[in-house]
């Protein structure tokens, strides 16, 4: 009887997994296998002739002849680091403030913070261009009226563009992570806080002894998502600076992308599926190493708590 039940249960388990598994394999895994084949070829994509086998030549090019890629790796680290360090604390803070049950109009406040994530990145990037441009941007105007600066700052120059990109992505990201945090905080029951209150715990104690440990797996998950998406972000960069000026905002996956599709209608970079696949592969390895390092680190944290 039991074994029959067991078999039935196993069947149910696989049945429940199957819809997601089918989608996962056909839409996530298969395309990647399709592309990975090209890593050892010189191939310009459909419509450019047959792939030519060149062995490891693409990797030779990446490691010896491609300073832009390595620049893009550094840029990605700067971008992702900046974004994560700003967006996660701010979003967590917003979530903490906006889960207070006695706060009136909390829904409206959340909606406001969520607004930026609705606007499409194409539009968002355009608006930020209008705000930050050097000649008549709103930001320069305000800074000059407030006498903070006396000369307009060239925000989108090679020196400053990355800062603007990070600001844009933080603006667009707070809402998202706030929602993740709110969902996570909902799982902590009020009773825990109440008993802590009775024991006279202060805010910081509650934060570090209850909230953060109890968020546990969700917090870890959110940080993972933050890391992986920050490393893969490219759509707003693509519209705002196209990776420029002088590759100062070129990130790894945008760099890989341009070998598959032109970034802008005026771009004349040849499509190179083979090389692009290799660049994507190396980039994915870099993200992988960083995420594994993070997981190791967070496991250590688990042991402390």
């Amino acid at each position: 009887m039991i074994s029959k039940n067991k078999i039935k249960q196993k069947g149910q388990i696989y049945l429940m997994l199957s819809p997601n598994l089918i989608l996962f394999f056909t839409l996530s895994v298969y395309p990647i296998i399709w592309v990975i084949r090209f890593m050892f070829y010189q191939y310009g994509g459909p419509g450019t002739g047959e792939p030519i086998f060149i062995g490891l030549d693409n990797f030779r090019r990446i490691f010896t002849k491609d300073p832009i890629f390595w620049k893009s790796v550094i840029n990605t680290l700067v971008y992702a680091g900046g974004k994560i360090l700003l967006v996660l604390p701010l979003a967590f803070f917003a979530a903490m403030m906006l889960t207070k049950k006695n706060l009136k109009g909390v829904g409206a406040f959340r909606a406001i913070l969520f607004m930026p994530t609705i606007l499409s990145s194409a539009v968002m990037a355009l608006v930020f261009y209008l705000l930050f441009n050097a000649y008549n941007g709103e930001i320069n105007k305000y800074l000059m009226t407030l006498n903070i600066i006396d000369q307009p700052i060239n925000w989108l120059s090679a020196k400053n563009a990355m800062k603007v990109i990070v600001i844009t992505s933080v603006w667009g990201g707070i809402g998202n992570y706030m929602i993740y945090f709110i969902a996570g905080l909902q799982g902590i029951s009020n009773e825990v806080y109440e008993s802590a209150d009775i024991e006279g715990a202060n805010f910081t104690q509650k934060l570090f002894c209850i909230t953060i440990p109890m968020l546990g797996p969700v917090l870890k998950m959110i940080m993972m998502i933050a890391i992986v998406t920050a490393f893969q972000d490219m759509s707003s960069i693509m519209v705002m600076t196209e990776g420029g000026p002088i590759n100062s905002t070129m990130v790894m996956f945008l760099y890989a992308y341009q070998f598959f599709f032109p970034i802008s209608p005026g771009s004349l970079v040849s499509t190179q599926f083979g090389y692009g696949a290799s660049v994507s592969f190396v980039s994915a390895c870099i993200v992988g190493i960083i995420t594994i390092a993070f997981l190791r680190f967070s496991r250590k944290l688990d042991e402390i708590y």
Partner: peptide, 23 residues
């Protein structure tokens, strides 16, 4: 045929851009 001239590193326009801005 753009596939016949696959340049490694910066293409001409990117190179000009760097030079124009003093790099």
């Amino acid at each position: 045929n753009d596939q016949a001239v696959i340049v490694e590193g910066n293409d001409q326009y990117q190179t000009f851009m760097e030079l124009i801005f003093g790099k």
